[in-house]
């Protein structure tokens, strides 16, 4: 198996005909891609379908990966585009958490989770839930920065923004996350 190889070496193998080597890339990035997709879809079934679509798209376009950026950055660009297309198709609202109706939507989405809140008081669960309650744009940028090991320059590239705009967006996303935590998990926040 090609598990010891870096991404570029694996891509080289796939392009030279060893299609099974692609499984290494899938295994390596499936959790990242799935988590990012879930930030958009808010639904595991859809996230899995979208993630599968992303890996298929990435495979078909693999010859276009020039290695000028990290494979992960290139892959997350596909994630971003595919998820935005998915949301457009589903006609979900993707923007503005300043809009109260979005807060309400997030609250409704989270109502099932809140039922279990008493048992799941861990701080990490609380943060995960708060991230899940954010709008896709905010949840995506936080996940890219904190979990997907992308720098602000790389995030800017993925989202098609200027680096400073990405920085401002990240800052706003963190502020909104904090507001979410204070609003929906006030008791837990006090305990921290």
């Amino acid at each position: 198996m090609s598990t010891g190889l870096n991404d570029t070496e694996i891509i080289g193998k796939v392009l030279s005909g060893d299609h099974q080597a692609y499984a290494v890339l899938v295994n390596r990035y499936q959790n990242y891609v799935f988590t990012l997709s879930l930030r958009f879809t808010k639904n595991r079934e859809d996230a899995e379908e979208v993630s599968q679509d992303i890996f298929v798209k990435a495979y078909k376009a693999l010859a276009d990966f020039r290695g000028s950026s990290k494979f992960s950055t290139w892959l997350y660009t596909i994630v971003n585009n595919t998820c935005i297309t998915f949301l457009r198709k589903k006609k979900l609202q993707t923007h503005s958490l300043d809009n109260e109706s979005i807060f309400e939507t997030a609250d409704n989405l989270d109502s099932g989770l809140r039922a279990n809140m008493v048992e799941q008081k861990s701080r990490l669960t609380m943060v995960s839930k708060a991230i899940a309650m954010l709008g896709p744009d905010d949840a995506e940028i936080i996940t890219l920065f904190y979990k997907a090991e992308q720098t602000l320059e790389e995030i800017a590239q993925i989202l098609g923004l200027e680096a400073n705009t990405a920085k401002v967006r990240l800052h706003r996303a963190r502020t909104r996350l904090k507001e979410k935590m204070e609003r929906h998990f006030a008791e837990e926040v006090k305990d921290i």
């Binding site: 499936q30 959790n31 799935f34 988590t35 595991r44 996230a47 899995e48 990490l124 943060v127 963190r174």
Partner: peptide, 13 residues
């Protein structure tokens, strides 16, 4: 935020 765990897809993914 750094410690939040990633979500995993199904075993068959």
């Amino acid at each position: 935020m750094q410690s939040v765990e990633l979500e995993s897809p199904s075993m068959r993914f």
